[in-house]
Simulated scan of single mutants.
Amino acid sequence: MKWLPLAYLAGSGYAALRFGCSTITVQRLDPVVEPGNAPSAHVHQVVGGNAFQAFVDPSVDVGKVANCTTCIFSEDKSNYWTAVLYFRARNGSFKRVGQYPNAVFHDGQKGGMTIYYTQESFTSNGKQKITAFRPGFRMTVGSPTITTLAEAQGYKALKYTCLDDILTRGRETFELPKAPCPAGIMAIHHFPACWDGKNLDSPDHQSHMFSTTKGGFQIADPCPASHPVRMPQVAYETMWDTTPFNDPALWPEDGSQPFVWSTGDTKGYTTHADYLFGWEGDSLQRAMDSDCFFQRCADDRPGGVLKIQTPDEQNACALQRRTVEEDVDGCKFLPPFVGRLDGSGDN
């Protein structure tokens, strides 16, 4: 299945955001799950504001602390991150898989991800008020400790698509594709959108939220009484460019798939994502209260309500300093991917 052009998706309903963010850093930091640890247990690829560091104080408004973002909407200083995908060569070395921009984006995005904020669907909020996240809010979805398919299926909105081309959709799987994909692998992360209305975080970073999503961009079920507040449906799409490794001669001699998450997982079960809210002021609420759609939410378009920046401005945003200095691009990892990185490797 392929998506229709965006013009056919837009209706007369409610706001939906879809925008690209360039990579701001690739390193072992996780201020949500492992605050203060440098390094954290495994490597992450991160997009968004430049306030990202080993510890991000929950009492601080990130939208005020960060002074730039790698996202096209300049008021979004949030951070979004997932684990990193690697190719394991026959000689045991690893190479980081690159990322490329999604379809229908401007030229210039460097790596990164596609970020979505939707409501009930692309054209409706189900006649509900959509409440924007608050400063200090954070959440995760998925788990780096999952070891079975049954556990992975408990997160029905975390899947993969083997891409025939950049517009391929559907044919989602809970496991990494077992054969070369012509245009790479898309990793998909949909977060829960029902909030308990009280807690900006929880000990497991998930219990303050409840998921009623059915996967994909299908209309979600109503929120339960325990989590009655409908918030935006946040989703990530990461386009992993596995095409440089599609030569069967590079794959393991037994034919097994050679891609591995930075968690050490070769099945795909540990796919997970973190979200740390950082929109400036009321900008996200302003967007959710509007009827703007995707790129037309930019204030240089009729009806647009969000400030937009140029690709050069987007890509100029950088962290003030790198916290963990190590080779994360081509390396030999010490099992189980939690020790120091030991040297570099080639295919």
Score class of each variant (00 low, 15 high):
residue 222 P to V: 11
residue 222 P to F: 11
residue 222 P to W: 07
residue 222 P to C: 12
residue 224 P to K: 07
residue 224 P to F: 09
residue 224 P to H: 08
residue 224 P to G: 04
residue 225 A to M: 01
residue 225 A to I: 02
residue 227 H to S: 01
residue 227 H to I: 00
residue 229 V to F: 06
residue 230 R to T: 05
residue 230 R to K: 10
residue 232 P to S: 00
residue 232 P to K: 03
residue 233 Q to C: 01
residue 233 Q to S: 10
residue 233 Q to Y: 10
residue 233 Q to L: 10
residue 234 V to R: 09
residue 234 V to K: 07
residue 235 A to D: 10
residue 235 A to P: 02
residue 236 Y to A: 01
residue 237 E to S: 01
residue 238 T to D: 13
residue 238 T to R: 14
residue 240 W to T: 03
residue 240 W to V: 03
residue 240 W to Y: 14
residue 241 D to M: 13
residue 241 D to T: 09
residue 242 T to H: 13
residue 242 T to N: 07
residue 244 P to M: 05
residue 244 P to A: 06
residue 245 F to R: 12
residue 245 F to Y: 15
residue 246 N to Q: 08
residue 246 N to S: 15
residue 247 D to M: 09
residue 248 P to L: 13
residue 248 P to Q: 02
residue 249 A to Q: 14
residue 249 A to E: 14
residue 249 A to C: 08
residue 250 L to F: 03
residue 251 W to G: 08
residue 251 W to T: 10
residue 252 P to A: 07
residue 252 P to K: 11
residue 252 P to G: 12
residue 252 P to F: 08
residue 252 P to R: 11
residue 253 E to G: 06
residue 253 E to R: 10
residue 253 E to W: 01
residue 254 D to W: 07
residue 254 D to R: 07
residue 255 G to K: 07
residue 256 S to I: 00
residue 257 Q to E: 12
residue 257 Q to I: 05
residue 257 Q to P: 04
residue 257 Q to K: 14
residue 258 P to R: 07
residue 260 V to R: 08
residue 260 V to I: 15
residue 260 V to S: 01
residue 261 W to K: 11
residue 261 W to L: 15
residue 261 W to D: 03
residue 261 W to E: 13
residue 262 S to N: 05
residue 263 T to K: 06
residue 264 G to S: 05
residue 265 D to N: 03
residue 265 D to Q: 06
residue 265 D to I: 03
residue 265 D to S: 00
residue 266 T to D: 13
residue 266 T to Y: 08
residue 266 T to N: 11
residue 266 T to H: 12
residue 268 G to S: 01
residue 269 Y to S: 11
residue 269 Y to A: 06
residue 269 Y to T: 14
residue 269 Y to W: 15
residue 270 T to H: 08
residue 270 T to V: 09
residue 270 T to W: 10
residue 270 T to G: 12
residue 272 H to N: 09
residue 272 H to A: 05
residue 272 H to M: 05
residue 273 A to Y: 04
residue 273 A to L: 00
residue 273 A to D: 08
residue 274 D to C: 06
residue 274 D to G: 12
residue 274 D to M: 10
residue 275 Y to E: 05
residue 275 Y to Q: 04
residue 276 L to R: 02
residue 277 F to Q: 10
residue 277 F to L: 08
residue 277 F to M: 05
residue 278 G to K: 12
residue 278 G to P: 08
residue 279 W to E: 09
residue 279 W to V: 11
residue 279 W to F: 15
residue 279 W to R: 11
residue 280 E to D: 04
residue 281 G to M: 02
residue 282 D to S: 15
residue 283 S to L: 14
residue 283 S to W: 15
residue 283 S to M: 15
residue 284 L to K: 04
residue 285 Q to A: 10
residue 285 Q to K: 10
residue 287 A to E: 06
residue 288 M to Y: 02
residue 288 M to S: 01
residue 288 M to P: 02
residue 288 M to W: 04
residue 289 D to F: 09
residue 289 D to V: 07
